[in-house]
Structure formats: structure tokens, C-alpha cells
Write a protein that binds this DNA or RNA. Structure first.
Length: 562
RNA sequence: UGGCCUAUGGUGUAAUUGGCAACACACCGGUUUUUGGUACCGACAUUCCAGGUUCGAGUCCUGGUAGGCCAACCA
């Protein structure tokens, strides 16, 4: 057993240190805590991969906890989508939990804090409170209601809960320090009145706990050992600890293990955006056809596009974890799906931009069935039959009347190999009135049949073309995608809105011809269209109208040099 | 008139914690090839700057500089 020495990332180092300092391994417990207010995207996959990855590494449970404290933005639809996405990625959570499950417990602890003089009801407007809050460089001022008596606070808080007051009239605040250099410690809100139905608790509650109060205590109730989140929550850590330490005093016998929050940098991907709010805008404005549009960086979009869970997990793994701002080149993601599909996707032939080739010395009515290897990378993938006849389609760009030596494809007087078939030589071509080539006349060498073992079939030629027999071709719609944004970092411009960089030509619908074996392809099946790229069968596809998505093109050194 | 965080090739992550800067992607060049794919080989860095400690510094110290986050009854 050769142990590959893999260096630990900083989170693993923290855990190893805790373990070394006496934390029992059984205490390790993690969580992934999405708010069900949108669809998961590739950025979330990093957070998912970190916490679930740690769970796998240390054989520790990982909870899926929905952070559902804002009924105004959350919906069951999102809960369902998130569960589907996490499962699809191949992760199994220990318990499915909801912050809303803890509303009563949270309320009781809040009452306790009030009794201890550590929280108070404020009756100012949000504007007034904002003014008193100060700025990062100026200390804040105490609220005039900061010193209300415990009795009055208790009464008010209870009446808030009972629904006696309108939204915006009262809030519960933690009494900490209005002069703290950390804005979050300047008497943060714990509860606000929200008279909205919650997707799980319905109308049971009209006061809802805020993130900071909820999140840490949910971690605590679940006895999460390491609460991992992204960097922007770093300033929240002080408050996280304040709440945690105060509550700990009330309940350490029931919940002996205080959790700790640690932060890592979130994932950014070039040529796209990673903000639920902005992604929602693309959906709402019809820039894309929904959250699962194959151009979206959402998990559901990537899934529909044809990405495999393995490719995404590999991607996340090689991206790594650190605390510095980063932008990952989308080329790495593309590499990961090619790497996966190269080994697993069967090869087929499809012509996206066809021009007809007539093999003039091939008998009019003759048809033969050729044997084609499904996947040269996989011995067990077998072979399939591909029909051949006198008339075939090839790609327009695979023929030129004349071209230099660097052009390995078909040109007049030159011979190329047809993949799995024969060698052909172009003799002439016909054009329409505009000079477009409409047909190419070739002759074939009958002795060069692929797999026949003849000396002729082993001739070396520079070019091998993919093709589809005209008579047997199956029509299919191919959707080819370009990046959704033309700028490398569309939402990083201070002076420009990300919408300005939307690529108007990110979707191209192509009427293509594919080989007949694809007639029976099922939704989700992935193929390599030889020489073109990887494609999958889209959800819209039917046996009558096949629809393929282009997942990603093959690496193309020729295109680069042109 | 602040607090906190972060600086290693084009990108991202490493560096046995003070000992030959490594891996992957991208880019460039080559070999193989019935995919201009795959595979394989090669090229690609004065570790943000300036001082200091040390036989030895990406790592420690001092001082700068740059970038990020923090003023929602959002999470």
C-alpha cells in the first residue's frame, strides 16, 4: 500500500490539530446549510465538497440544513431542487434539518438572554437604527430603548410573538457594544416581525430569527464541530462566538460541544457569475430558459448540459481550498468533463454543417454496413454498425477546392480516409449561383475498407473525416453553447453592470445529421461526436425529434492555429 | 478616520513547518495516432516591494504596497 502523501488544506489542518488536542473523532460533525431561496450553483459545490468531503474523510456525519429564516424569499421548490442537486452530486447527508425546526428553542433562549439583560426590544425605525449604528470608522450611539427593564422587554417580546404589532415596529436586539470596531457587534438584530407564511411553519410564527442568531445556535443544537462557510462571514465569527458562549451557559449539560466557525474563500469561475440574485435576474428577464438552462452555472444547468457528477467533484477537488480570492479558469471545468467523457462516452458520427459527397464509382444501389469501434479508450465498449452508401454528408469545413499542406482534409485531387470506411479522392465539385459548394464528387478505392487488413487500407493519410450516409441519416437538433458572458469577470466591474456583458450569441440551434444508431438514444445519454466534441441528449428530446446539447468541444489544435 | 483577512508562474493549489519552489489547467514546441481527440515527451517563476535575522528565508522579524470583506428588520 503506497500511501500517496497529500498535503492537508488549512481546514484539514485545523481539524487534525483539534483531534491532536483531544477532540474525540466521534465528535466530528459537519453541515451544509443552504438557504432555500434559489438553485445551487457550481460555487455551492465547493462548500458542499468541503463539508461532505470532510465527512467522507473522517467518516463523520454531515447534515443538510436548510437555513429557512426568511419566509419572504424561501420556497419548497428550492428545497426540492437543492436536495436533488446534492444527491445527484453523489453526497449523502446524515439528517435533513431545518433552522425553522429550532424556532421554539431559539425563542426560549432569547427570553433567557432578555432575563439576563443581554437582549432588549427596540422600537425605533430601521432608519433610526441605521443612523445610530455609525460607520466602520465612527462608533455608534446607544438606542434610547437600550435600557428598558427586563419586565418591559419580556412583555414586549411576548407581544411581538403574539402578533400584536405590525411589521417594522419592534425588533429584538442583542445588547453588546455600539462602539465595537466590528459593525456586527453593535447591538445586532435577533428578531424581526414578519407576517408572512413560512413554507414549513405556516403562520405559527410572526417573528423570525435573524441569520446570526439562528445559524450558530443551529450548529450548536446539532453539535456541529466545525461550521465552515465562506470568507465574507469572517466578521460574523465574533458574533457567532458571543451568542454561542452565552447560550452555552444555559445548556452545556445537554449540548456539551461548542462549534467553531472557520472560513474559506468562495469559488469564482471565469466568464460567468456566481450570485443567486444575479442568476435569478437572468432567469426572470428571459436571458436564459430557466434555472436549468444548459448555459447556467447552476448544478441543474450543468446536469442538463451533460456534465457528470464525477467531473464536477474532480473539478472541486483540484481547485482546492484556501483563504484567498480566486477566479478559476472555466477551461479547468471543461478539462474535467473531457477527461471523464473521453473514457466513458461512446463515439458516434454526426455532421453539423453538411455538404453532400457523391462517390461516383460506388454502385447506385449498394449499401453496406461497416463496423465501428464504440470507444478506443474502453476495450469493453464493443462495436456498432454504421451504414455506408454512395452519397454521404461531410462537414463543409472539411473540404476546400485548394489549400496548403497544413490542411489535412479533403481537397481536389487529394485523398483522405473516411472514418471506419474507405479512402476517397475528390475530383470535382459543383456550386450554386453564389459560389457555394453544393456537392463534391469523389471516387473511392474499394481496396481500402477499414478493418479489411489489406495493404491499401493501411496507407498513411493525414486526414480522417467523419461522415453520415445521406440515405440513412437521422435529422437532429443540436444546441451549441457559447459562454454566457463575453467578459472574463462580468460582475467585477465597478462602473459596469454585469448585464452589459451578456453574450447575445450564447445559443446556436443547428439542424444536424447523425448516424442511425442514435435513433434510440435516451435522454441524458452522452456521446462523443467524433472530431467535434461531447454531446448529450437533452430533456426536450423525443424519438421523433432528437435534441442534443453540445457539452464541450474537443480540444482543437487546428482551430487554434488557423 | 477604524477593524479584520489575503498576497507563490497566465490560472488555481502545494512546499516534509527554516533546507534543491512541486502538481494540475492554460499557452507554446515535439512523438504516436483510422478523431488536428487521447496518450507520451519537452518548454514555461528572481515566491508583491524594501530592509533585517540566519550557513541557509516563499516560510521568521520590521516597515511599506496592493487586493478583499464589514454600516440589510438578507443569508
Amino acid at each position: 500500500m503506497s500511501e500517496e502523501k497529500k498535503s492537508l488544506n488549512f481546514l484539514e489542518q485545523i481539524i487534525e490539530e483539534d483531534l491532536a488536542n483531544g477532540m474525540p473523532k466521534e465528535n466530528l460533525r459537519f453541515r451544509f446549510p443552504p438557504e432555500p431561496n434559489g438553485y445551487l450553483h457550481i460555487g455551492h459545490t465547493k462548500a458542499i465538497g468541503i463539508s461532505f468531503g470532510l465527512g467522507e474523510r473522517y467518516n463523520a456525519p454531515v447534515n443538510l440544513r436548510f437555513d429557512d429564516t426568511n419566509p419572504a424569499k424561501e420556497e419548497q421548490e428550492y428545497v426540492d431542487a437543492i436536495k436533488k442537486d446534492v444527491s445527484w452530486l453523489g453526497y449523502q447527508w446524515d439528517q435533513e434539518l431545518y433552522s425553522s425546526d429550532y424556532f421554539q428553542e431559539l425563542y426560549d433562549w432569547a427570553v433567557q438572554l432578555i432575563k439576563d439583560g443581554k437582549a432588549y426590544v427596540d422600537s425605533q425605525t430601521s432608519e433610526e437604527m441605521r443612523e445610530q449604528k455609525g460607520t466602520p470608522t465612527e462608533v455608534g450611539k446607544n438606542s434610547p430603548f437600550r435600557d428598558r427593564s427586563v419586565e418591559e422587554n419580556l412583555d414586549l417580546f411576548n407581544r411581538m410573538k403574539e402578533g400584536e404589532f405590525e411589521e417594522g415596529t419592534y425588533v429584538l436586539r442583542a445588547k453588546i457594544d455600539m462602539a465595537s470596531p466590528n459593525m456586527l457587534m453593535r447591538d445586532p438584530l435577533m428578531y424581526r416581525i414578519l407576517k408572512k407564511a413560512h413554507h414549513r411553519t405556516g403562520n405559527d410564527w410572526v417573528i423570525y430569527p435573524m441569520y446570526d442568531w439562528t445559524h450558530g445556535e443551529s450548529d450548536y443544537l446539532e453539535q456541529i464541530s466545525h461550521s465552515l462557510c465562506s470568507l465574507e462571514f469572517k466578521p460574523h465569527r465574533e458574533l457567532y462566538n458571543w451568542f454561542r458562549d452565552n447560550v452555552y451557559e444555559y445548556s452545556k449539560s445537554d449540548f456539551p460541544n461548542p462549534p467553531k466557525q472557520r472560513e474559506f474563500s468562495r469559488l469564482n469561475l471565469s466568464y460567468t457569475i456566481m450570485s443567486k440574485r444575479k442568476l435569478l435576474k437572468l432567469v426572470e428577464e428571459g436571458i436564459v430558459n430557466g434555472w436549468d438552462d444548459p448555459r447556467m452555472p447552476t448544478i441543474s444547468g450543468l446536469r442538463r448540459r451533460g456534465y457528470t457528477p464525477a467531473s464536477i467533484r474532480n473539478f472541486i477537488e483540484t481547485v482546492g481550498v484556501s483563504k484567498r480570492e480566486n477566479v478559476i479558469d472555466v477551461a479547468l471545468l471543461e478539462f474535467k468533463i473531457r477527461e471523464d467523457l473521453n473514457k466513458t462516452a461512446n463515439r458516434v458520427m454526426g455532421v453539423l454543417d453538411p455538404v453532400k459527397v457523391v462517390i461516383t464509382n460506388y454502385p447506385e444501389d449498394k449499401e453496406e454496413v461497416l463496423i465501428a469501434e464504440n470507444n478506443p479508450e474502453d476495450e469493453n465498449s464493443g462495436t456498432r454498425m454504421v451504414p455506408f452508401s454512395r452519397e454521404i454528408y461531410i462537414e463543409k469545413e472539411d473540404f476546400r477546392e485548394e489549400a496548403n499542406k497544413k490542411f489535412f482534409r479533403l481537397k481536389l485531387g487529394k485523398e483522405v480516409r473516411l472514418k471506419n470506411a474507405y479512402f476517397i479522392t475528390a475530383n470535382s465539385c459543383t456550386k450554386d449561383a453564389d459560389g457555394n459548394i453544393t456537392e463534391i464528387q469523389c471516387t473511392y478505392d474499394p481496396l481500402t475498407k477499414s478493418g479489411s487488413g489489406t495493404e491499401e487500407s493501411k496507407r498513411k493519410v493525414k486526414g480522417t473525416l467523419h461522415w453520415v450516409s445521406v440515405k440513412h441519416a437521422v435529422k437532429a437538433e443540436v444546441r451549441a453553447y457559447d459562454r454566457l458572458f463575453l467578459d472574463e469577470a462580468p460582475d467585477a466591474h465597478k462602473d459596469k453592470d454585469f448585464m452589459e456583458f451578456v453574450n447575445p450569441d450564447s445559443l446556436e440551434k443547428i439542424e444536424a445529421f447523425v448516424e442511425p444508431s442514435l435513433q434510440t438514444a435516451k435522454i441524458g445519454d452522452r456521446f462523443q461526436f467524433q472530431r467535434l466534441g461531447y454531446f448529450n441528449v437533452d430533456d426536450d428530446s423525443t424519438p421523433e425529434n432528437l435534441v442534443f446539447n453540445k457539452i464541450v468541444g474537443l480540444r482543437d489544435n487546428w482551430a487554434k492555429k488557423k
